[in-house]
């Protein structure tokens, strides 16, 4: 239901009561409203849906998930030969 895509905040400015960020998705950027993620800062990754950031991605949590997954896979010998996540 709801296509939302992570992108990185390159810059942000106040305009008419809203914070508007320039957010990078791969090789493009587009303006994104930060009204719902007041805590987001330049350099953060946000999940964007229809032009609004709906969450600030938790880098530590993402990392931890990967460690768990990798341990799980490696313990089972499934990840042998894989470079693992970047």
């Amino acid at each position: 239901m709801c296509l939302a895509v992570p992108g990185r905040i390159l810059e942000a400015e106040e305009y008419d009561g809203s914070r508007i960020a320039k957010v990078q998705f791969g090789g493009i950027t587009r303006p994104v409203l930060l009204n719902f993620v007041p805590e987001a800062q330049v350099g953060d990754y946000v999940v964007v849906h229809v032009g609004f950031a709906i969450s600030r991605l938790d880098a530590a949590e993402a990392e931890r998930t990967f460690q768990l997954l990798e341990e799980m896979g490696l313990l089972e010998g499934e990840l042998a030969g894989s470079e693992g996540p970047p």
Partner: peptide, 13 residues
């Protein structure tokens, strides 16, 4: 696929 095309495609589905 170039990064710009990928980004636009991800964003717009």
């Amino acid at each position: 696929v170039r990064e710009a095309v990928r980004g636009a495609c991800e964003l717009l589905g």
